[in-house]
Design a protein around this nucleic acid. Structure first.
Lengths: 329, 329
DNA sequence: ATGAAAGCGCTAACAC
DNA sequence: GTGTTAGCGCTTTCAT
């Protein structure tokens, strides 16, 4: 059996409350007693029982993480970041995967919420109203989505798209195709806006080819339409789509970057390994997870810390072979 | 505030103990009372507080999962399987990532073990002794590793290698190179054994080129040595290594599968997207996670269920372009 | 079949 | 600064 606080108290010759205080509020106990307690703790290998503590404090020392798909490298990295940062704070992480089912989202969060202090919700597809309802019941931090009034971390999609367009324009491109992700996705909408602003500012043309699944298959499906636009460059919703484009363009005999330059978003590991290696807007994935955890913990400590309520992360253009090496002839 | 068992008891006009029984041991309570309790539970949206229950039962309804690297697609899939199956059993999953640090392994398990009923430990690098010590303190199920006496799920690596070799030999290959993973890895060792058996049975030659990191970079590093062996085919420790080989061979002007056929292991999503698409031994990743959870839960219910103590999963050869389409000339 | 009472391990008033 | 008391929400004897 594991040692309890009473065992420690007995061994240290003090009361249980003193042990409790020595551990949680060291300032409130005499240095000498504190040392005796520490010794007893050490000797017994005592670790407070979190369930018992939680029962009384109402805090579990646990947070939940809900992602659409763990097998998607983007979310896997994010999870890694969340998990690492939470551990630093001695907080455990429950992970739940909705399997890309938007219907499951709020149910999962609600189920989790009984067991955790707060939840990090990634790329939610639910409506703003649904999210607001969830936030009513539990402390939530959104990732990759901004919803009115809710705390969260998102990426500056507009700026990322600006960087991508600027790069392509500098290489001589004047007509740029855009393969969107799911129409309902917050990031697709914002990337589209950023793109429109950027092409307008730089006086080039944008050729949107519609919305596709954010997958390799989505890219394969979009490729022929991209080719038909007559654009000399294409920006894809994400790297998976861009790699799908690469595959289909290759089998059509369309050379990248010779005939068409391709840019993705995310910078998943796979992008470096693609042929040609993919130019992409790198999104700091683990960083988003870390920021989300910090935000959540801050919010739990002080529920109306309105000042730190939203994080905004920047992407960084990574130039690889799919847009080079030579400028457009 | 959430409803407590007393609220339910009051509303149903019974005592708290009756509510408790109605929920956990329905057989022990009168059908009529049971119905009244059920109605009250429904009306109040009551959910038992797990921490309070755990305090007395000693069970948390939570399991831990320790993986070397969440960003590795292999472990991401596995985690997905674990998480999905655990949810079916209404069990929550704590996920921890060791960041490929074997030293962190046992510490993490120990830390987790205070908060969970049992732990699924994936691809542990620790010694058999370390693992045995951990198993002493908490219920553990190993994945991708068999250690004397410990329950676990692993793959039939020997058979997987046999399939790969048979395929290559049927295509006409007579000298097959092998790029091993980390020397300390259990699966490297077993794959090597399977390979030796297979080449012996089929009367062909094996050319091992040593041990490399189980990554894309590892594959890049191994490629030139592979080429130098004079083999016409190579089997890589895993798909990441195989894709690294593909990249380096391509830049050396060595054609795959024209000059050299390449086979990987795992069948991660990336393999389908490689150019040429990678022939590989598909390992059921999510399935391993599911089996591990079932095993762990069975063990928790009956600590000496020695019968179901080890699962063995089979790989399946997936033939793609990196070993075809034409047989060796 | 049901209720009363005790207590899991801990923290938070409240005394001193 | 420290001990005493009470109680978080639940399950589990032990009565009845």
């Amino acid at each position: 059996m594991a040692a309890t606080i009473r065992d420690v108290a007995r061994l240290a010759g003090v009361s249980a409350s003193t042990v409790s205080r020595a551990l949680s509020l060291p300032g409130m106990v005499n240095a000498a007693t504190r040392a005796r307690v520490a010794a007893a703790v050490e000797q017994l290998g005592y670790e407070p029982n979190r369930a018992a503590r939680g029962l009384i404090t109402g805090r579990t020392g646990t947070i939940g993480l809900v992602v659409p798909d763990l097998a998607n490298p983007f979310f896997a990295s994010l999870t890694k970041g969340v998990q690492a940062r939470a551990r630093r704070h001695d907080v455990a992480v429950f992970v739940a995967d909705t399997d890309e089912d938007p219907t499951a989202e709020s149910g999962l969060v609600r189920a989790l919420s009984k067991q955790v202090d707060g939840v990090v919700l990634c790329s939610p597809r639910g409506s703003d109203e649904e999210l607001a309802a969830i936030a009513q019941e539990t402390t939530v931090v959104l990732v990759n989505r901004a919803a009115a009034g809710l705390p969260g971390v998102s990426y500056d999609n507009e700026d990322g798209m600006r960087q991508a367009v600027a790069h392509l324009v500098a290489l001589g491109h004047r007509r740029i195709a855009w393969v969107g992700g799911p129409a309902s996705s917050w990031s697709t909408q914002h990337r589209a806006v950023g793109l429109r602003n950027a092409v307008e500012a730089l006086q080039v043309e944008l050729a949107p080819v519609g919305n596709f699944a954010p997958t390799y298959e989505g890219g394969m499906a979009a490729a022929d339409q991209v080719a038909a636009t007559g654009a000399t460059a294409v920006i894809a919703y994400n790297d998976l789509v861009a790699i799908g484009l690469l595959a289909r363009l290759h089998s059509r005999g369309i050379s990248v970057p010779g005939d068409l330059s391709v840019v993705g978003v995310d910078d998943i590991a796979m992008s470096r390994m693609a042929r040609p290696a993919l130019t992409t807007v790198r999104l700091p994935k683990q960083e988003a997870g870390r920021v989300a955890v910090e935000l959540l913990l801050a919010l739990l400590d002080d529920p109306d810390a309105a000042s730190t309520t939203h994080g905004d992360l920047h992407g960084e253009l990574i130039v690889r072979d799919s847009t080079g090496p030579a400028p457009l002839k």
